Amino acid sequence: MSITREFLRSPGRTGAVAASSRRLAAAMVAGIGVERAAHVVELGPGTGVFTEALLARLEPGARLTAIELNPRLAGDLARRLDGVEVVTGSAEDLTRHVRSADIVVSGLPWALFPSQRQERILDQVCEILSPSGRFATFAYLHAAWLPAARRFEASLTKRFGFVGRSRVVWGNLPPAFVHRAAATR
């Protein structure tokens, strides 16, 4: 399934014009402890590039729950990838679908969200993360200076004891970097 086609059909439900690269997927899952996680949650998996990278690192018996707003993308993901619990729904309803997670990985377009939506979703991410939980998401380099992107980064710093950035992944279109955060509870 084409992410570009889904974006053109419904730009409000699909935040990316092109699928993330495998290089960005590798950066997303690096150093967050996927190998030790019992339950990983992915927000906005889209075509499943990050999902596949997560599945490759998960230990047998670990759970992966993917929450995707776009019903076409969710259906395709559920048919294509065994071992993933796919929920068709909004990340704003995260706590309705998940009680706890060791890691949350997000492909959501944070810089496109209004402040209230960013806050609601981040509050729920923090609510389900275990005390030693990790959070990873990405941002496009060209959009990092936008007010919504800067507001999002400030929200991460407010909620997490550790917030860091990866190096720029130039092999992604457009170039991006990963925000990594560790829970403080």
Rank of each mutant, 00 (worst) to 15 (best):
S2N: 13
I3N: 02
L8A: 14
L8W: 05
R9M: 04
S10V: 07
P11G: 09
G12Y: 00
T14G: 04
A18F: 10
A18D: 04
R23T: 02
A26N: 05
A26T: 07
V29G: 03
I32Y: 05
A37M: 02
A37N: 09
A38C: 12
A38K: 13
V40R: 11
V41M: 12
L43F: 08
G44C: 06
P45N: 07
G46N: 10
G46I: 10
T47W: 01
G48L: 05
F50I: 12
E52I: 07
E52H: 06
L54F: 05
L55W: 08
R57Q: 13
L58M: 13
L58Q: 00
L58I: 05
P60W: 04
P60R: 04
A62I: 02
R63A: 14
R63G: 13
R63I: 07
T65D: 07
A66R: 02
A66Q: 00
E68Q: 10
L69N: 02
L69A: 13
N70C: 06
P71N: 02
R72D: 11
R72S: 08
A74F: 00
A74C: 02
G75V: 00
L77M: 03
A78H: 08
R79C: 00
R80H: 03
D82S: 15
G83I: 10
V84N: 03
E85S: 04
V86K: 11
T88V: 14
T88Y: 01
G89C: 12
G89W: 06
E92Y: 04
E92R: 15
D93E: 14
D93I: 02
D93P: 00
R96V: 03
H97D: 07
H97R: 05
V98W: 14
A101C: 08
D102K: 04
I103A: 11
S106N: 08
S106V: 09
L108P: 08
P109L: 14
W110F: 11
W110H: 10
A111H: 15
A111G: 11
Q116V: 14
R117Q: 15
Q118E: 10
D123K: 06
V125R: 08
V125I: 15
I128M: 06
S132N: 11
S132E: 15
A136D: 07
T137W: 04
F138Y: 09
A139Y: 06
A139W: 07
Y140L: 12
H142T: 10
A143E: 13
A144C: 13
A148P: 08
R150I: 01
R151G: 10
R151F: 00
F152M: 13
F152S: 04
A154G: 13
S155D: 13
L156K: 01
L156A: 12
L156Q: 01
T157E: 15
K158V: 13
R159E: 00
G161K: 04
V163E: 01
V163C: 05
V163M: 06
G164I: 01
R167H: 09
R167A: 12
V169F: 02
N172E: 07
P174I: 11
P174Q: 03
A176G: 12
F177P: 09
F177T: 00
T184R: 14
T184L: 14
